[in-house]
Design a protein around this nucleic acid. Structure first.
Length: 388
RNA sequence: GGGCAGGUGGCAGAGCGGACAAUUGCACCUGACUGUAAAUCAGGCGCCCUUGCGGCUACAUAGGUUCGAAUCCUAUCCUGCCCA
């Protein structure tokens, strides 16, 4: 624990470690550990909330441990419900394949590709038979499963819980067996599934893995970051967009974001925390935060220009330097808004116009405005297009 | 397999023959105020034509009763609870 890198590994963005003592000893021993992380391709994009645990994995990688990144093409079909209030529908192979296409690529914005073993868990899950599954299932009781808060809540609310959902932790636990994991990483919402590995491994004469649980990151609206909430900052977001999204997070989340979503040393983050307490303008600190995050995924050049762009558009209320240019067929402003997807229907377009939400060349537009090439249409504060 | 209770807009949840495109809360959108933060306030939130106490499509699905149905009836599908 004297090595600062190990201390950082075991504390930063970490909520709990099982078994803390054992893992510390393992790390100190200098042994090369097999560290596992599984992610189901249930959405096409990775967001910076999911990235928290990926960065943790990266830390292990940097310390020389063997990292196994499991793409949950098998588990994804069944669907994990541990972070859901309702049953997750069974996903089709096609959907998963579609999502997987860019997955590894996105993960490698964070992980070192050459040092990562990528596995697809359908490889071993599809080979299991009923009897073996039964043997594993016997290690768990219904009570522990249903005692989980999310599940208990659903029981109370009289919502359906499919037996399929019970299988999920077993599958994830078996993954650990398949890759002989010494350590598994996951978010705090994964607690039960992570523990399943510890339960199942001994059945296969493996010693139980240690578990590192990372904290969850709130999204732009303060709720947990989740693809289904629409409050995510994707790691594939364009620099300007990403910068803007970070700027819109709640002030109270600033320090947390520094810790979980950037690689700034903790010592520096402490200093920032002090600055905030002593009355620094949160906006400026947030700008720095946004810069750090954009740098991680797009490089410092992109970050600098995104920062300038942001100041231009939002502080000085000027137009962005690059505006999407589109050709349209429609003539009426209402139709143009729909055609360019600035409004989802004509009714909405009319509403926006009626509510002074649309500007044409900086003038508040009405329905009778004439549309001609060259004009700039703005909807709300941040959507701009230029007509060709 | 049997009994009971249910299936309403993105979610939660009212309505139980006309006044229902459907109360309300959350989420979302626009405007004001700002630091594109939060909070607050105002408006909006099916679609279409418009600006009319307009038209169309909607309250699981398919039929039916009625001048008129989210509301009643029948069948089907689905969910929960209890029993076997």
């Amino acid at each position: 624990m004297n090595d600062p890198r190990i201390r950082d590994l075991l504390t930063r963005a970490v909520s709990e470690i099982i078994d803390q003592g054992h893992l510390a000893k393992q790390l100190a021993s200098g042994k090369k550990l097999r560290v596992k992380l599984g992610i189901d391709p249930t959405s096409p994009n990775l967001h910076i909330g999911r990235a928290v645990v990926l960065w943790k994995l990266r830390q292990f990688q940097e310390l020389g441990h063997h990292v196994i990144f499991i793409v949950g093409d098998g588990t994804g079909v069944i669907g994990d419900t541990s972070d859901k209030e309702t049953e997750r529908p069974i996903m089709t192979r096609e959907q998963l394949t579609q999502n997987m296409k860019t997955y590894a690529e996105q993960a490698f914005k964070i992980l070192d590709k050459n040092k990562t073993e990528v596995r697809f868990n359908s490889e071993w899950l599809s080979k299991l038979g009923f009897f073996e599954i039964g043997e594993m299932a016997d290690l768990f009781s219904w009570h522990e499963f249903s005692a989980r808060e999310v599940i208990a809540r659903r029981v109370r609310a009289g919502k359906r819980i499919s037996l399929r959902e019970v299988l999920y932790p077993i599958m994830q636990g078996y993954d650990s067996v398949a890759v002989k994991a010494d350590v598994e990483l996951g978010g705090t919402d994964q607690r039960f599934n992570l523990l399943a590995g510890r339960t199942i491994q001994p059945l296969y004469k493996q010693s139980p893995q240690d578990i590192v649980m990372t904290n969850l990151l709130e999204g732009t609206d303060g709720r947990k970051m989740s693809s289904s909430w629409g409050n995510v900052i994707n790691i594939t977001d364009e620099p300007n967009d990403m910068f803007g999204k970070v700027m819109s997070i709640d002030d109270d989340l600033i320090v947390k974001y520094f810790e979980y979503a950037t690689r700034l040393p903790m010592a520096e983050i402490k200093t920032i925390e002090q600055e905030l307490k002593s009355g620094a303008n949160p906006r400026d600190i947030k700008k720095r935060l946004a810069g750090e995050i954009v740098t991680l995924y797009h490089g410092s050049k992109a970050a600098t220009s995104a920062s300038k762009e942001w100041a231009k558009v939002f502080s000085q209320k000027e137009k962005p330097s690059e505006i999407r240019e589109v050709k349209v067929k429609s003539k009426a402003i209402v139709d143009v808004l729909v055609e360019t997807k600035l409004a989802s229907s004509k009714s909405e377009a009319r509403r926006l116009l009626a509510q002074k939400g649309v500007k044409v060349d900086d003038e508040i537009a009405s329905e009778s405005v004439t549309v001609k090439p060259g004009i700039i249409i703005q909807v709300g504060k941040r959507k701009f297009i230029k007509l060709l």
